[in-house]
């Protein structure tokens, strides 16, 4: 990959109390790239994503968005957050708003679109995730998979430069997982820049440009899927993948 670096973390360190969750992570994602992060639970994947999404500051280290150090000087963080989409592990839709209302909110209040314009754009995004017929439904009336797809539409609507996905299918059963993964694959093929924490190996194999293995607060190894899935360098990545791939009956 040789495009412009959209998002980069340098020496990211995060400490909660006396616990070091991240211990100096370096990571970068280039324009159009799909990067997947895998790793055991507790390895710091979600924390890394929240920090890269500017949802919480790192204890140490720098984050660059399109070359700009976001925590240096006084940049408007909200403006940058709007350019970094985020899809959460648990469906995090606004419960009091319809699917359409969820997608419209940022368009109206952050991008300051007029109501009609926002509505048109929001419908377009719901169409992209195959939910235009569910526009008037409240989250409580949608399945987990549908809720996640609305969440994707909500992130996508802002025309972000990158979207971060934090295990978006972890709380879904297998059939619902597929419908979400399918939408994500479509986005990857469209060239949307994505950083995805997931253990959906078929997804990683299909669309990832690179898979990174994370453990104990560090990225231990990054490689293209064909290398990472067959012959990872580090023994821990090897044993982790062996178990993970076993769950898929080998790939």
């Amino acid at each position: 990959m040789s495009g412009e670096i959209i998002l980069e973390g340098k020496g990211l360190w995060k400490r909660y109390g006396s616990l070091d969750v991240l211990k100096g992570v370096d990571i970068s994602v280039r324009k159009g790239e799909t990067k997947v992060i895998i790793g055991p639970s507790g390895s710091g994947k979600s924390t890394l994503l929240r920090i890269l999404g500017l949802l919480e500051p790192p204890t140490k280290g720098e984050i660059y968005f399109r070359g700009e150090n976001v925590y240096a000087g006084n940049l408007n963080l909200n403006r940058i957050r709007a350019k970094i989409g985020f899809v959460f592990q648990e469906p995090s839709l606004f419960r009091h708003l319809t699917a359409l209302g969820n997608v419209k909110l940022g368009l109206k209040h952050v991008l300051k679109m007029k109501d009609e314009e926002a509505e048109k754009k929001a419908m377009e995004m719901l169409r992209l995730v195959h939910l235009e017929e569910w526009a008037d439904h409240y989250p409580a009336q949608l399945s987990g998979g549908q809720q996640q797809r609305v969440g994707i539409a909500r992130a996508l609507a802002m025309d972000p430069d990158i979207i971060l996905f934090d295990e978006p299918t972890a709380s879904l059963d297998i059939e619902l997982t597929w419908e979400v993964i399918e939408v994500m694959e479509e986005l990857a093929r469209k060239g949307i820049t994505m950083l995805v924490v997931t253990h959906e190996i078929p997804f990683a194999k299909e669309v990832a440009d690179e898979i990174c293995f994370m453990e104990e607060g560090l990225i231990k190894e990054c490689a293209p899927p064909e290398i990472m899935l067959r012959n990872p360098k580090t023994p821990r990545a090897r044993s982790f993948l062996k178990r993970l791939l076993g769950a898929y009956g080998g790939i």
């Binding site: 709007a82 959460f88 995090s92 606004f94 209040h109």
Partner: peptide, 19 residues
Amino acid sequence: DQILAARSLGLTKTQIIRY
């Protein structure tokens, strides 16, 4: 989660409280 989601959209603290 909803508050983080709202923040990720770039809403300000005041907007998050209000909307």
